[in-house]
């Protein structure tokens, strides 16, 4: 299916948000996920299903300053 991930179109065959993270080798603990502008709770990553046309934003921690 066609998804938009961090603003870029991607074709992935997945059924849940967690599948997307697994496909991309991202540790779910280390990212905040927004699905169609709604934050997805950590515990619901595996039960939140993905459909064609969905928009996902992955927000990683960004530290720094010093």
């Amino acid at each position: 299916m066609q998804l938009t991930i961090n603003g870029k179109p991607e074709t992935l065959e997945v059924s849940t948000v967690l599948d997307v993270l697994k496909t991309k080798d991202i540790d779910p603990q280390l990212v905040a996920v927004e699905l169609n502008t709604q934050m997805v709770e950590q515990e619901q990553l595996g039960t939140t299903s993905i459909k064609d046309g969905d928009r996902l934003e992955f927000l990683f921690f960004m530290g720094g300053g010093v």
């Binding site: 991930i5 961090n6 870029k8 991309k24 990212v31 992955f58 990683f60 960004m62 530290g63 720094g64």
Partner: peptide, 13 residues
């Protein structure tokens, strides 16, 4: 104490 996480957003995109 922590500063950053991997992968970075651009590594991903």
């Amino acid at each position: 104490e922590a500063c950053q996480l991997q992968p970075s957003a651009t590594t991903l995109t």
